[in-house]
């Protein structure tokens, strides 16, 4: 209220113009490179120096590039596998932490958040040392294990947020109506926390599909994912194919975010009903 009043008058109008300009500049700074990237992915010229007309050539050559195809396949295997595993375990962790008291819970709780705050590079080195000590052969399996290691925490956090608002009397009502523990979980608990679980799964998928540092350290020959592939391509210079690939990944991650937003919206509707 007070600030609004201050913004009135001639001085206020000036201030408002400056703030608007500041906002615009910030947005341009953030989004201009992305716009350039997308525009040039349709540029007929090989070089980013000039616009030579519209083409889908780079997208076509992407589709024909066997190495990129293999990397995409690896990325989907890693992201899909680690998402499924970490969603199941993350949900179980969230349920255990929200519902039960056990000795060492506080220590476990703090440890659970470690993968979220720990720098990627530390985690990557740590995992690499672990795999070397364990004599594991680096490849898709080690990448998946590594991604599960950090994704569990993210899923657990998202699902716990949902569980925190869970009305326990709903489970009591189910048990009062002759549902045993399993039936109660399947018919009441799971459907009600599903938006949280799906939200966590989407977050895990997004984090996994664009992870670079940890994947780089834990991958082996033939297990390059898309980000690793892009990195090795960039080393030879930025080509329009890379622009096209990046634009493609941008669209996919935007769709994923949109989906998680829609899911969360649906979830909130249910909370309102409660």
């Amino acid at each position: 209220m007070k600030r609004e009043r201050q913004l009135k008058g001639r001085r206020g109008r000036w201030l408002r113009h400056i703030l608007t300009a500041h906002g615009l500049v910030s947005y341009i700074f953030l989004y201009f490179p992305i716009v350039v990237l997308v525009v040039f992915s349709f540029n007929a010229s090989r070089y980013a120096s000039a616009w030579r007309g519209f083409t889908l050539e780079w997208y076509v050559s992407l589709l024909q590039d066997a190495a990129i195809g293999a990397a995409l396949k690896n990325s989907l295997i890693v992201a899909g596998g680690s998402t499924v595993i970490s969603t199941v375990f993350g949900t179980m962790v969230a349920l255990a932490m929200e519902r039960y008291d056990f000795s060492g819970k506080l220590a476990f709780d703090s440890l659970l958040y470690l993968p979220i705050i720990i720098p990627d590079i530390v985690m990557a080195v740590m995992l690499l040392i672990f795999f070397v000590l364990a004599h594991a052969q680096l490849g898709l399996v080690t990448i998946i294990i590594s991604h599960v290691a950090f994704n569990i925490s993210f899923v657990a956090v998202v699902v716990r947020a949902r569980l925190a608002y869970f009305d326990l009397s709903l489970e009591e009502a189910a048990q009062d109506l002759y549902a045993n523990e399993w039936q109660t979980f399947a018919r009441v608990t799971l459907p009600l926390i599903m938006p949280g679980i799906l939200g966590g799964a989407l977050l895990a998928f997004t984090l996994s599909i664009d992870d670079f540092v940890i994947t780089f350290f834990t991958s082996g020959p033939g297990s390059s994912t898309l980000p690793l592939r892009i990195y090795s391509m960039v080393k030879l210079g930025v080509t329009p194919e890379i622009n096209a690939l990046s634009s493609f990944m941008l669209i996919v991650s935007m769709l994923l975010v949109l989906l998680s937003f829609v899911l969360r919206k649906g979830g909130e509707g249910e909370i309102e009903i409660v």
Partner: peptide
């Protein structure tokens, strides 16, 4: 139940 505890879904 006091808050009815109807299944919202």
């Amino acid at each position: 139940f006091q808050n009815y505890a109807l299944f919202p879904h």
